[in-house]
Design a protein around this nucleic acid. Structure first.
Lengths: 334, 334
DNA sequence: TGCGCCGATGTTAGCGCTAACTCATTTATC
DNA sequence: GATAAATGAGTTAGCGCTAACATCGGCGCA
């Protein structure tokens, strides 16, 4: 077991190959002009010594780390793990590594992450569905050179943006319209906590605009987890048995509500119709299957990474990509 | 919009505070003896200039990057995203960042990742459920100073090990025993592709040891995804309608098989009883709910990170932690 | 008074690379 | 054959930190 103690450096390779360190550096980076003979000789020595360049030294002199960061609220949420997969695959193609920061849906960790990741740590930053309020988010993003956000509009000079889904309020109301068409009238909504751009008041206004009853109690802000949906659903259905439909802020919440409803003896969709939000695998597999909106999650991650690399390549024009989602009619709200 | 072009360095801070760079360095690292007055003054300057040290420079001189890598086969698999969450949370507490490598269940990417992540990139490495064959894996792991693997035994000098579940064959046979107890006799098994330590022959031997029929065709190696389980399940059930039970290598596969069976008109559990493997959220939410084994996924990630930090702290003794799993009896195999 | 010691700070010398410049040969151009 | 333009190298000077050693004034102690 030969465990090297002293690292092999460029100089070792240069000495061994009988050339200058710059020549070796050029071979490694495939830059400058090198004769075939020299290149071959250097390559042979590199392979023989199993030399690998120091990322740290390189980063210090080039000020590029070949890493990007992905900041997500909850990696165990299938929505985000697919986005991360998309980001990672594009980064890998580009020779970049991904630093994953999971903020656990807490503002403090999101704040800390955005504050601590300086330029010397990563070359670029993808912030997925940030939860911080606008002013704080913007001032934190301003510290970074290259940023892309998903699902959050920020000032154009700060970042490019990928929007994975339609406007959330519009989506909810689209769900409402579908429910109304099948005769529902008293429709609850579980918007996600800290998801920006959705105000309960707007939802209620939307209901009224449709001539529907609009009880403020029917709009329950909810953490974006199954457990939160389950708890909120159970509480709301117990207190408001008059409800005949519900729209979840995402699938996890909708499925939590569905489970709560089933446990309370509601038949779905007969007694309570349910619409979800992002079409995770679970949605198609439960019984009854969940009516929801298909969101291109992996593609969102890929697009975010592509926009980031475009920025890093010097094209810092603001870009905004909006994916459109597709309504998926299933059994929970036929 | 003041976009700094030139980075603020230690020297800037030192000059501004009227001390040497070493003094500033000592304040930042909380090392050496510094008078309260000086410390205060330096801290004030650091805050005023918004100075943040260069990770690259630090890494170069200390040869510590304050990053660990997590290599996983598929981040969209809930099993792994929970493990990653566990890893990330412990790393964060220790002031470390996590480099995520998703190998997409391909050997080539796993090989490339383990080969390219040198010591200058990360201080330690957690390899989750590696798929590479033993000899190749071992020689790749030998390049790294501090390694922990999950779900894979490697030579003691190479890494500490966390085993999230019982021996996979034993688990499958435990499932078989449960199925036999409820009168099943012809039991298919879908072991996961490239999961080491499970040979179809051993499973068949296990069946025979129980006096059961053991058709080699009933053991179908399968990629660890829902889609693969669905496809394998459909094919097998069409060809072997005599089967009355199935054990999945994990929940995703078992649920894919369940869907296939339902589509073929089988009643579950009456016509076909199904047992899964790792108790993902989905398992408890489908109808009928999936009988499976509870595996502590987040805890596995946390333990892996803890063992890694122990190694990095200089305690390089081999450690092995085995979690035990709990049988969860649900409706798919009551 | 002189010695040693300690607490607080400064000085020096890199860590392992690459940008930018220099320089000696060839090879094209007229 | 003289000049210009490539070509294939080498040399120098750091990037921004910190380890390790050096220094220096003051304080206790004999």
């Amino acid at each position: 077991m030969t465990r090297r103690r002293t690292r092999i450096t460029l100089d070792d390779v240069a000495r061994e190959a009988g050339v200058s360190t710059m020549t070796v550096s050029r071979v490694i980076n495939n830059s400058g002009r090198i004769s075939d003979a020299t290149r071959e000789r250097v390559r042979e020595v590199i392979a023989r010594l199993d030399y690998r360049p120091s990322r740290a030294a390189r980063a210090l002199v080039t000020s590029r780390t070949m890493m990007i960061a992905a900041v997500v609220p909850d990696i165990t949420n299938p929505y985000f793990s697919e986005i991360v997969q998309g980001i990672e695959s594009v980064a890998w193609e580009q020779g970049y590594s991904v630093l994953l920061v999971n903020t656990d849906e807490t503002l403090s960790r999101e704040r800390a992450a955005l504050g601590q990741l300086e330029d010397s740590t990563v070359d670029g930053l993808i912030v997925c569905s940030p939860r911080l309020p606008d002013d704080e988010l913007n001032s934190l993003l301003a510290r970074h050179r290259f940023v892309v956000t998903t699902n959050r509009i920020v000032p154009e000079h700060l970042a490019s943006v990928v929007i994975a889904h339609d406007d959330l309020l519009q989506r909810a109301l689209r769900g409402v319209d579908h429910l109304v068409a099948s005769g529902r009238r008293r429709i609850a909504y579980f918007p996600l906590r800290r998801t920006h751009g959705v105000e309960p008041a707007d939802y209620l206004a939307g209901l009224e605009a449709r001539g529907l009853e609009a009880d403020p109690a029917w709009c329950v802000v909810c953490a974006p987890t199954w457990e939160a949906g389950y708890a909120a659903g159970k509480a709301l259905l117990l207190e408001h048995p008059e409800l005949d439909a519900a729209v979840g802020g995402n699938d996890l919440v909708a499925l939590g509500v569905m489970r709560a409803a089933l446990e309370l003896g509601r038949r779905i969709p007969d007694d309570l119709a349910i619409v979800g939000g992002d079409d995770i695998l679970l949605a198609s597999q439960v019984t009854p299957s969940l009516t929801t909106f298909r969101v291109l999650k992996v593609e969102t991650g890929q697009m975010a990474a592509q926009l980031l690399f475009k920025r890093m390549a010097g094209d810092t024009r603001y870009r905004e990509h909006r994916f459109t989602e597709e309504f998926i009619r299933r059994d929970s709200a036929p």
